[in-house]
Design a protein around this nucleic acid. Structure first.
Lengths: 225, 225
DNA sequence: GGGGAAATTCATGCAAGCATGCTTGATTGT
DNA sequence: ACAATCAAGCATGCTTGCATGAATTTCCCC
């Protein structure tokens, strides 16, 4: 299912939310929504952010030049510069965009509620760390680790996403966090997922990942009772 | 005399393994010692590689320009270009350098032999994923994931280091790999270590890491019997 | 409700900064 | 003396940021 929701669309595709200037999304605008008065503006802004994330996942930080992102978004470079005066503005906004997308993807796991099948839960969680969203986030982390401006925002948002991941993981696994060690167990699981996602960066080792997931899902099942 | 040509490097510049030109690393080169027969040349070459790794860990890929690396190594940019005609040559060589360093660090754990204290082993393994070497490797991976040339070499070397990590981990943990699931268990542990190292990129969460390590060491102890 | 001013949004051209690679010249070791 | 090694200057290409101008949208007043 659409666990990861970034667009792996064809290069020239139009974003899903790309509307003609006139029509608007169903429940889109509240009454006092004053900031972007034009739908077209919001659309291009969103397109730029989505393109930035996509470029980040596909071409990395250095390769994601504003020209590239603008072209990917189907707008001129000047338009990009209008919405985000500086390159840093663009990517700091992209950080929040990625964080939101990841939170959404995370919450998309929630409706199922706590299933008894822990292996399925672990598989789903790990899957979150192998999609393009995680790739983009990874590039963002690495870039932010050396860009003073980005780091603070990235760490803050990542902490938020991390907490939410943990909460949802506990929920889905049906773990009793009051028991000693359970919290650390789940954290370790998420760290393992991160590590599996990182390993997936260079080589697509789905087979190995699946085996590791199966094994540790079993161990987790024992540990959580 | 001129041990090193212009030793006017910045104060903190000496890499940990920065040796005098004469002495070599323990098992450094076989008899078929190739191209540079001059010690000074080898020294600057090594300095350049060490500087490249250090810059990679501290400033990231984009920030590690050849000028920066050369300055860090205490040589002119032209000298760097003499040893590594292109920037890519420099960093592909740096890849191997990092791989060797990581293997050395890994082997440094070996002399102890298999101890009964699995928590200490896990701690040591995880520690390997939190140092500057891992940081450099991380930047390298992320950069390589989008640079066609680097990727093949990085994946190859990383596979080697990964196998060695696994072998040593099995050895130190006293695990019986013929038993079903043991291989995947250890792999998962290493993946978790990777994830912890990745989490350590932005925020130094040594406390959390320690708790997770303690907990997972316990899980491992149970799983391995 | 309609028309026009004002503001927003977007496109294009331009100059500055920077990194890479190449070439030339000086220095050291064999 | 010769070759290798190192240093410095030069030329090219790319990216960013800014400035100007056109098209579109919103606001405001009649």
């Amino acid at each position: 299912m659409g666990v990861v929701t970034t667009d792996d669309r064809a290069p020239d595709d139009r974003a899903p939310d790309d509307r003609a200037p006139g029509d608007r999304a169903p429940g889109d605008r509240g009454p006092g929504d004053r900031v972007p008065k034009q739908d077209r503006s919001r659309a291009t802004r969103r397109r730029l952010l989505a393109a930035a994330v996509a470029c980040l996942a596909e071409r990395g930080w250095a390769g994601s030049t504003v020209s590239v992102v603008a072209e990917r978004a189907g707008v001129s470079r000047g338009a990009a510069q209008h919405h985000f005066p500086t390159r840093e503005d663009l990517f700091t906004a992209a950080v929040e965009y990625v964080a939101e997308e990841r939170s959404d993807a995370l919450r998309a796991l929630f409706p199922q509620g706590a299933t008894g099948d822990r292996r399925a839960v672990v598989t789903a969680l790990v899957a979150l760390y192998t999609g393009p969203l995680f790739r983009a986030a990874l590039h963002l982390w690495v870039a932010a680790s050396n860009e003073e401006q980005l780091r603070s925002r990235v760490t803050e948002l990542e902490a938020r996403v991390g907490r939410e991941s943990h909460r949802i993981a506990v929920e889905l696994l049906g773990a009793d966090e009051s028991a000693p060690g359970v919290r650390e167990t789940v954290q370790g699981l998420l760290d393992m997922a991160r590590g599996l996602g990182l390993a997936n960066l260079l080589t697509d080792d789905a087979g190995r990942r699946e085996r590791v997931v199966a094994q540790w899902a079993g161990l987790l099942d024992d540990a959580l009772g």
